[in-house]
Write a protein that binds this DNA or RNA. Structure first.
Lengths: 233, 233
DNA sequence: TCGCTATACTGGTCTATACCAGATCGACAA
DNA sequence: TTGTCGATCTGGTATAGACCAGTATAGCGA
């Protein structure tokens, strides 16, 4: 644990505990530096982190303030499992197929693979509290994740598996969202009627080294699911 | 212009010019420090900025690499006008009403105003290349932007007006997106039939000082509009 | 009482230096 | 030939100081 993270966590905890409420000022950088017995630059680095997370707001000449409502402040993305748990629902999945197959042109282009390269397809019906909420197709390059096909994807989060098995962390995603009407065959899966509102998202995800990890297409039932996002700048 | 920004811009330009293509390594921090005649910490600060923008990727022990496809790399949000122009469409608006009225409980809560406080309502039909694409209701606190009601909102971007007139920059937004079926009265506006797919977004926006600026509800026609987003972490 | 200014805060930038930690690669030994 | 060890790259953290640039305010003078 570096000093920098220790200072950051200290402030985070004081904010979480309500000791530093929203709109209140944190101690000045010089004060914190003296309290921790470190140089001011180190304190600045720690505060930089929290500002980047949207927890603190700086003002030259004024003091550094605690931003309002820390909840949902991370402008990032989460896996389906994480997202459902955050909303207080119990997620699980029904794996409909896990196969490796040659990528068609569209998938190959999305993953930047040579045409015909092998990809792993994971098709899952995803439930929240035992109700089907989304139908998901995920494609991953087989060359990078060869053992993935044999793993248990019903309970575990795909992202957790990727991190634990391959040390890969998805950190960047480009996503598109559109509204459509539920086609008959999909409607059947959800127990809905054709023509019900649905949300279709397409996503490609990259790791810290900018490598493409997955291409995913997900159809959500529109009557139960609302996408929530936070964006900065 | 600080040295830090100059170094950042220098790298940005070299990347934009193709001199530093994707996946290539930028000079080491020590090299850059010597070339610019500054200390290494200053170079690091400049590189930090570009890493934050997603333009560069660091690896301890390895060199710092240029990330792929700078396009759409900003994980931020844009106004309708900006967004349409980015996609190559000509935006314009038909202002249907601009009024100030007492906020109902929902709007007051969203903008964190006392119940009954006055808000400005701007209702616009938004066009891309002369085709109606979205129907938007924006609420802003009247106390903060009293002169806004008299301004020309048909051509100008609301965000531009806020920045030029009040020095307010929207930097943070929380947004929800859901799919719905177009109700009959809305469908008429778009020249569509009731039951067509539609995307409903609700958004609250904050400025750099974490003050609530606007609450907006927008209904997009689902057959022409797809929301695109980039997310990090 | 009102308005200005001097001062003492705040954060913002920058230096010069030190050492730590991960990655790479060549030389040398088994 | 193969492996391993170390030199030497890289970025990561931290120091102790300096000065710049906004902001608030106490107090003084009109």
């Amino acid at each position: 644990m570096t000093v920098r993270f220790a200072i950051g966590d200290g402030l985070r905890n004081r904010i979480a505990a309500g000791e530093l409420p929203a709109q209140s000022a944190i101690p000045s950088e010089r004060e914190l530096a003296q309290q921790w017995g470190v140089s001011r630059m180190t304190v600045r680095a720690a505060i930089d982190d929290l500002v980047g997370e949207g927890l603190l707001i700086r003002h030259q000449g004024r003091k550094t303030l605690v931003a309002g409502e820390k909840i949902n402040r991370a402008a990032g993305f989460t896996s389906f499992s994480e997202e459902m748990r955050l909303r207080g629902w119990q997620p699980h999945s029904q794996v409909r197929q896990v196969t490796t197959l040659p990528a068609d042109v569209a998938i190959a282009a999305q993953l930047n693979l040579p045409p015909g390269a092998r990809v792993i397809l994971i098709e899952r019906l995803r439930f929240a509290d035992d109700e089907p909420l989304a139908h998901e197709f995920v494609y991953l390059p087989h060359s990078r994740f060869p053992e993935l096909a044999g793993m248990d994807l019903a309970q575990a989060s795909l992202y957790d598996l990727l991190e634990q098995t391959y040390g890969v962390r998805p950190v960047y995603a480009e996503e598109s969202v559109e509204a459509m009407l539920m086609p008959a065959n999909e409607a059947e899966l959800f127990g809905l009627k054709a023509g019900a509102p649905a949300l279709l998202t397409r996503r490609v995800t990259r790791d810290e080294e900018d490598n493409l990890i997955e291409a995913a297409t997900t159809l959500y039932r529109g009557d139960r699911y609302r996408m929530v996002l936070a964006r900065r700048r």
